[in-house]
Simulated scan of single mutants.
Amino acid sequence: MQILHGWLEHGNRSDCEHFDQRPKTNGSYDINLLVIHNISLPPGQFGSDHILDFFAGKLNPQQHDFFKHIYQMRVSSHLLIRRDGKVVQFVSFLDRAWHAGLSSFQGRTRCNDFSIGIELEGTDNSPYSNEQYIALAKVSQTIMHHYPDITLGRIVGHNDIAPQRKTDPGVAFDWCRFRQSIC
């Protein structure tokens, strides 16, 4: 697996307009944090294309009551890893996806400016699939190779950068298994 011009080579892409340019530091991008999230739409349900629609700004509020509360939100992530391990990329790593919201890591705010966001299709309390762990390890290793400032200590959950607001990837995420798989 390779990254070319911010995109996973031979990866699956999905339309997304919810992103903008990252700020540059001394003329280059400062990408040094990987943030792991979870998402399911509707909550607790897997396998539909509602997440893709949500990130594309095309979520139909008539399809589920929950969607009426979120369909106008402008959010995105760089990647989604489906339950079957399929990886979908929405935003180039060179651009700023809108996944972290109000956030801080080691005293630095606005984590979207310097992070890559990966969504796992799941919930805080549902075990993630073996295929997801395999895909997450492969993608993480590729990202770490391409962006060497992202080290093991700079891979965090959304709960770590927004602890008062977020709980994902949740208690079901096996950090030990994941860390061992990328070492």
Results as ranks from 00 to 15, higher is better:
Asn38Lys: 11
Asn38Gly: 04
Gly157Glu: 00
Leu94Val: 12
Val35Arg: 03
Arg74Phe: 02
Gly57Val: 13
Phe46Gln: 13
Lys166Ala: 12
Gly11Thr: 14
Met1Lys: 07
Pro169Trp: 02
Leu94Gly: 15
Ser40Ile: 08
Pro163Cys: 07
Phe66His: 11
Ala162Asp: 01
Asp113His: 10
Leu41Phe: 10
Met73Tyr: 11
Phe90Cys: 04
Leu136Asp: 03
Asn159Tyr: 06
Ser126Gly: 07
Trp7Met: 02
Phe93Tyr: 15
Ala172Phe: 03
Ile161Asp: 00
His78Gln: 08
His64Lys: 15
Gln45Val: 14
Arg179Leu: 06
Pro127Cys: 10
Arg22Gly: 00
Ser140Gln: 01
Leu80His: 02
Gln141Tyr: 03
Tyr147Phe: 06
Asn159Met: 14
Ser77Phe: 01
Asn125Leu: 14
Pro61Phe: 05
Phe105Thr: 08
His146Arg: 09
Thr142Gly: 01
Ile36Lys: 10
Gly101Ala: 10
Lys86His: 09
Leu8Glu: 00
Tyr147Asn: 03
His10Phe: 15
Ile81Met: 05
Arg22Asp: 08
Arg22Gln: 13
Ala97Asn: 04
Glu119Lys: 13
His99Leu: 05
Gln180Ala: 10
Cys183His: 11
Gln141Trp: 06
Phe19Pro: 00
Asp30Ile: 04
Glu121Trp: 04
Asp168Val: 05
Leu80Pro: 00
Val75Lys: 12
Gly122Trp: 06
Gln132Val: 08
Ile116Gly: 04
His64Ala: 05
Asn12Glu: 10
Ala135Leu: 05
Asp168Phe: 09
Val139Ala: 15
Ser129Ala: 13
Gly6Asn: 10
Gln141Asn: 12
Ala137Thr: 11
His5Cys: 09
Gln2Cys: 11
Leu33Val: 14
Cys16Thr: 13
Asp160Gly: 00
Ser28Pro: 06
His69Thr: 10
Ile182Val: 08
Ala100Ser: 12
Leu102Val: 13
Leu33Trp: 04
Arg165Lys: 15
Asp149Tyr: 08
Gly170His: 05
Lys68Asp: 03
Gly101Leu: 04
Ala100Met: 07
Val88Met: 11
Gly157Phe: 00
Met1Cys: 11
Arg82Ile: 07
Asn12Pro: 07
Asp168Leu: 06
Arg165His: 10
Cys16Val: 09
Phe46His: 12
Asp113Gly: 07
Ile182Ser: 00
Val171Gln: 14
Val139Tyr: 00
Gly101Gln: 12
Asn112Trp: 07
Ser129Ile: 00
Met144Phe: 09
Asp168Ser: 07
Ala97Ser: 14
Cys16Phe: 14
Ile39Gln: 01
Asn26Cys: 03
Gln62Phe: 11
